[in-house]
């Protein structure tokens, strides 16, 4: 060992390849912060609806624009990821699913469910729009 103690070193984040479980863990925080920023749009949307038809049309117009739809796609994916992984956190909080095999399986369930829900939402959304 580099420190000469023979004891294991903690991973050096710049050279250590994070396992999927670790990537999904930090992604939970990143999506959480992103969703918090998204509350600004939620507030704009609701306040605009309370102000005037013109203000609401501006907000709806922004959401329906190319940039707005890109943001909405990002937020919907982040929302579903944070929702699915959040349920996984609640399962952990209940003291379950701590085995490595559980983690590997739940990685796939969370990613699959978040992707499926995002795609499904956009198919339905674009169909009714």
């Amino acid at each position: 060992m580099a420190n000469g103690s023979g004891r294991p070193l903690s991973p050096h984040l710049q050279v250590y390849k994070l396992p999927l479980t670790a990537i999904l863990s930090i992604t939970h925080r990143i999506t959480g912060v992103g969703l918090a920023v998204g509350t600004l749009l939620l507030t704009w949307w609701l306040v605009a609806a309370a102000v005037s038809p013109e203000a609401f049309a501006r907000a709806q117009g922004f959401i329906g624009s190319g940039f707005g739809l890109l943001l909405m796609f990002g937020w919907s994916a982040a929302l579903y990821y944070h929702l699915c992984n959040g349920i996984r956190h609640l399962v952990w909080d209940a003291g379950k699913s701590f085995e490595l095999s559980d983690a590997d399986r739940n990685n796939r369930i969370v990613l699959g469910a978040a992707a499926a829900l995002t795609v499904l939402t956009w198919i339905v959304g674009l169909a009714v729009w």
């Binding site: 609806a49 005037s52 038809p53 609401f56 049309a57 709806q60 329906g64 919907s76 929302l79 939402t121 339905v124 959304g125 009714v128 729009w129």
Partner: peptide, 17 residues
């Protein structure tokens, strides 16, 4: 919320109210 937003995509002021 997601269902509600989908049902009101592009909704005008009157529909939202």
């Amino acid at each position: 919320f997601v269902f509600g937003v989908i049902r009101h995509l592009g909704a005008d002021y009157t529909a939202f109210h």
